[in-house]
Nucleic acid binder design. Structure first.
Lengths: 239, 239
DNA sequence: CTTAAGCTTACATTTACCTTAAACTTTAAA
DNA sequence: TTTAAAGTTTAAGGTAAATGTAAGCTTAAG
């Protein structure tokens, strides 16, 4: 994710009117992935299936209440949750925040306030300002040193610079090193969710990457293929 | 920093009464490093010198206003800032959030709300959500360790990699370990709902799997066959 | 003993992946 | 603006590992 506007948002509210309104406000602001549910059951399904990156949750719902729904979500995930409620009582407000809500807005609210609070919550969650200049990792594969800050591979024969795609792919592989990463997952890391042309493109990039990180690209030691499942980066030694 | 309570907090407010009160609330909660300033000038000095990791800022200050002070802080740092104000007007609220405040509380407030909002803001800033990818299980069968993330079986004689079919089958068996899994169910796990050729194909794959996970494939200890019903994985020890 | 269910092995086939080169696109330099 | 260079995608032919098939064998139950 490069931007908070890439976040998939789930709106849970029983009033169709309000769902449409909130959805419209969000879309106008630039959020493209907005989905909505009318009750707890539907919300649970969408949550499991769509894996939203932010939730806007009404307190009053036909088949349960927002608080217990939040507790369920919190048990399995840490996505930012923004409460929306007509009740302006301190008690509810505190209940919401205490249970782990990220913010709380009372109806009626200004569109601008919703946007501002949502942006604040999302950027805090996904682009933590303070720790933002976190360095990318540097690691070794045998004799080779790979620096993901500068995007370079230093071998005993010379130094290569990684291209954009190679960089994304190796980054993803490193994140999950030791584990199998599906081709699909790698494609999403390098090209985003947009469909893309040929299966084979990935293979060509993998080949290129191997040319840079493998002593013998044709019989890989580090970037292994797991037939039918994906690829796997092994032999990583962190620095 | 291991904990939000390690955060150094700066309170900026002109009323000594309120400074003491907020400070007391924070200390009681467990924050140990709390400092305070009465006006902009003092606040600037402390900010530069002490480098606080969180700021609680009043809007009304004798020698300026909280908003412009925040703008100064934001120019050089990205610490979480929590606004505190008597004015309960929408305008101010939006102004604060728009400039990059992390939250906004109106006086009078409940101690508990201050704490909750502060904790929310600090933990978001310093302990951001790491998008947790759920891991697949790792478990043992006697001496052998099976890792479904990397798709490997480590025995005392060596290490095998599971193929795609083996992976699906073992996954399904593990899901229901201790219980009988019908052949039909296993087939659906590995081949989907599409009909497929021969009964015997499954047996062949079971045999291959046994070759990898059983010390003696011909007299299985873990992957047992239950005549007329299916197969059963026993002796699983979770890791 | 007979039968049915499952096991085993070798061999055939398929499919997922590899490789290379050429075409296209973007970026940087002249 | 043109040219060159680097990066990326497409395409086609090749290969071996994974999978499927078949036939004979073993075991358990009645």
């Amino acid at each position: 994710m490069n931007d908070i506007f890439d976040c998939k948002l789930l709106i849970v509210d029983d009033e169709p009117e309000l769902r449409r309104m909130v959805s419209e406000i969000l879309r106008r602001e630039g959020f493209t992935k907005v989905i909505s549910a009318a009750d707890c059951q539907e919300a649970r399904q969408l949550f499991d299936h769509e894996k939203p990156e932010g939730v806007i949750l009404d307190v009053c719902l036909p088949d349960g209440d927002g608080f217990s729904l939040m507790r369920e979500f919190r048990a399995i995930s840490a996505v930012p949750i923004l409460f929306l409620s007509a009740r302006d009582e301190d008690e509810n407000r505190l209940l919401g925040l205490g249970l782990g809500a990220d913010d709380y807005i009372t109806k009626p609210f200004l569109p601008r306030e919703l946007i501002l609070r949502l942006r604040a919550v999302l950027s805090r969650a996904y682009f933590p300002v303070v720790l933002q200049k976190k360095k990318k990792p540097v690691f070794c594969l045998g004799e080779n040193e790979i620096n993901l800050n500068s995007g370079t591979v230093t071998t005993n024969t010379g130094r290569y610079t990684l291209t954009a795609k190679e960089f994304s792919l190796l980054g993803k592989l490193y994140e999950n090193h030791g584990n199998i990463v599906t081709g699909d997952s790698l494609c999403r890391a390098a090209w985003g969710d947009d469909l893309y042309g040929y299966e084979n493109t990935l293979m060509v990039h993998i080949r290129r990457l191997r040319e840079k990180i493998e002593p013998e690209p044709s019989s890989p030691r580090y970037l292994l293929t797991v037939r039918g499942l994906g690829y796997k980066l092994t032999g990583v030694e962190d620095k």
